[in-house]
């Protein structure tokens, strides 16, 4: 079988026995793939640091007969993103981004725009460290890229205009006017929804240069997390780690905990 070649981002590796590793990576044209890297744990000759999580690499692999696991042949390290290793929040967010991409786009297929988004997020965390804005942007982008965009600037139920004080419901898929409000919906200001909508309109692979106010982060972050949660097929392990480092601000009004 012919070898295949692609640029990729390493999402994770697990040790296999004494000397080998199984590597999960994301490519622009084939999405999520898994490969077997013989000797990668014990010897540094063949793969070096190229299979470290969050690295940008160029990989060469071959298909294995009767197996979905590919045989990794070569890995050329393009960018280790060493800066991530100097900031715990950046590391936690990088892990969160990678795990979310794997959970939402794990079925294979071409996802060049998801690849570009993840690459850009990791690059930004690498140079700038981690902050709350990046988590919110990541979640907004993933909602859009996975085709789940909650209604923000009009009522999700009646389509009507919104007053200053609005409620938001994941179940109703967006903002709610007072007439359509359901129990459990969380209060949110129109200004926050406006900021979220503006962020959402920016290119998915842009992370630099956003400065969100405390209210937008305080109201918007739990809302984005809850909306994304409704789309996730499984528990996100890196979320617990991230929340421990930087707990989400409490939902205003205390309503609508997820």
């Amino acid at each position: 079988m012919h070898p295949q070649k692609s640029e990729a981002i390493i999402l994770q590796h697990i040790d296999y026995g004494e000397s080998d590793r199984i590597v999960t990576f994301f490519t622009p044209e084939q999405g999520l793939l898994k490969g077997f890297a013989r000797g990668a744990r014990k010897s540094r000759k063949r793969f070096g640091a190229a299979l470290e999580p969050f690295s940008g690499v160029r990989l060469i692999w071959r298909q294995r007969p009767n197996s979905s696991l590919l045989n990794l042949q070569e890995a050329e390290l393009l960018d280790l993103r060493d800066g991530l290793r100097r900031d715990l929040k950046a590391l936690a967010l990088a892990a969160y981004g990678c795990e979310l991409v794997a959970a939402l786009f794990g079925e294979g297929g071409a996802h060049p725009e998801v690849y570009a988004m993840l690459k850009s997020l990791l690059d930004q965390l690498n140079v700038d460290g981690g902050c709350a804005e990046y988590r919110l942007l990541l979640e907004l982008r993933l909602l859009r890229l996975s085709g789940h965009e909650p209604h923000l600037l009009h009522c999700a139920v009646c389509g009507g205009a919104l007053p200053e004080q609005v409620h938001f419901s994941v179940e109703q898929d967006g903002s709610l006017c007072p007439a359509c409000r359901v129990p459990g919906a969380r209060p949110v200001s129109l200004a926050t929804l406006g900021s979220l909508a503006r962020c959402r309109e920016t290119p998915a692979d842009r992370f630099a240069g956003f400065h969100l106010g405390a209210t937008t982060l305080g109201e918007g972050a739990p809302l984005c997390t809850a909306a994304l949660d409704a789309q996730l097929p499984r528990r996100i392990k890196s979320r617990e780690f991230l929340d421990r480092l930087e707990p989400l601000p409490p939902a205003p009004g205390g309503a609508g905990h997820s």
Binding site: A95, K237, S238, R239, F241, L242, R244
Partner: peptide, 10 residues
């Protein structure tokens, strides 16, 4: 060791 990817905390 702490592992963000495996959710292993302190």
């Amino acid at each position: 060791a702490l592992s963000p990817l495996d959710g292993i905390g302190p």
